[in-house]
């Protein structure tokens, strides 16, 4: 197969093929209800989360088992993050933020399995997550603070003539939030996986193969790091936005 690729027109890479959404059980049309590879890998993420958070904690032990420790670590990690970043009154949103974090971190890590489909590499997925956060935070901000939420855009600590200018900048940055929030995650995932695939493609040339394998290994290590960091970043930004909604005054 490698020879064939080599023969055709030098090296041919298909780094984006891994992101194609295909129906699992035949057919070519992708309807909204079609069971696709997206469905499969989302289901695997749900199953993995259930395994860790429910099956892993079945002992309910005061002295935790290894699996229970991991679940508790995830719990306290996000719980502390919500409390530290968004404040104590944000803790009632903890289950939502935990859901976001667990989904992203598991989708990212499952995507690192060779031949896997990375659901979080799709802008459709991350955009839904980011818009969900954006709409929740905005609606919550107005419900909690009424028109006072607009104080978020009125920097009262700045000199008066500067305030309208700053307000414009603040409003623009506010509406850019969901865009950067979603593209950061999808972009990181997509780029990392595509680069892995390109490096793997070089392995078709015997002379370069060892370097290619080393590069793939190194990139894979980096991607493991990125997978966690992006989940962390997405979650902590959610907490920051939540803080803005609950306490809009700088």
């Amino acid at each position: 197969m490698a020879d064939e690729v080599y023969k055709d027109d030098g090296l041919v890479f298909h780094p984006m093929d891994q992101f194609i959404v295909t129906p699992l059980f035949g057919g070519t049309e992708v309807h909204w209800y079609t069971i696709t590879n997206v469905t499969l890998w989302l289901a695997l993420a749900v199953a993995a989360i259930a395994a860790m958070m429910v099956f892993g904690t079945r002992g309910r032990a005061t002295v935790p088992s290894k699996s229970q420790s991991i679940a508790e670590l995830a719990y306290t990690f996000i719980h502390k993050m919500v409390e530290d970043v968004a404040g104590k009154d944000a803790l009632k949103f903890f289950p939502y933020i935990m859901t976001l974090f667990m989904f992203i971190v598991f989708a990212n890590f499952l995507g690192l399995i060779p031949m896997a489909f990375t659901t979080t590499s799709h802008i459709a997925v991350t955009a839904v997550l980011a818009m969900g956060v954006f709409l929740t935070v905005t609606i919550l901000g107005f419900v909690k603070n009424g028109a006072g939420f607009l104080g978020l855009f009125w920097v009262s600590s700045a000199p008066l003539p500067l305030r309208p200018v700053l307000a414009v900048i603040e409003i623009i940055s506010y509406f850019v939030r969901p865009v950067s929030h979603s593209i950061r995650l999808a972009g990181n995932m997509m780029a990392g996986h595509a680069v892995l695939k390109v490096f793997a493609g070089f392995a078709a040339i015997t002379a370069v193969a060892p370097i290619s394998v080393l590069a793939v290994t190194a990139m894979y290590g980096l991607e493991v790091l990125v997978s966690f960091i992006q989940a962390y970043v997405f979650t902590i930004l959610t907490c920051v936005y939540l803080k803005d909604a609950l306490h809009p005054h700088h």
């Binding site: 959404v21 992708v30 309807h31 909204w32 209800y33 079609t34 696709t36 997206v38 469905t39 989302l42 289901a43 993420a45 749900v46 989360i49 259930a50 958070m53 429910v54 289950p95 939502y96 935990m98 859901t99 667990m102 989904f103 659901t119 799709h122 459709a124 997925v125 839904v128 997550l129």
Partner: peptide
């Protein structure tokens, strides 16, 4: 493929939320 992804994503998120909460 967007409707498909969004639909299944929402299903998955609700499932995760239920399991966790």
């Amino acid at each position: 493929t967007f409707p498909n992804q969004i639909f299944w994503l929402i299903v998955a998120l609700i499932a995760i939320y239920m399991i966790l909460n």
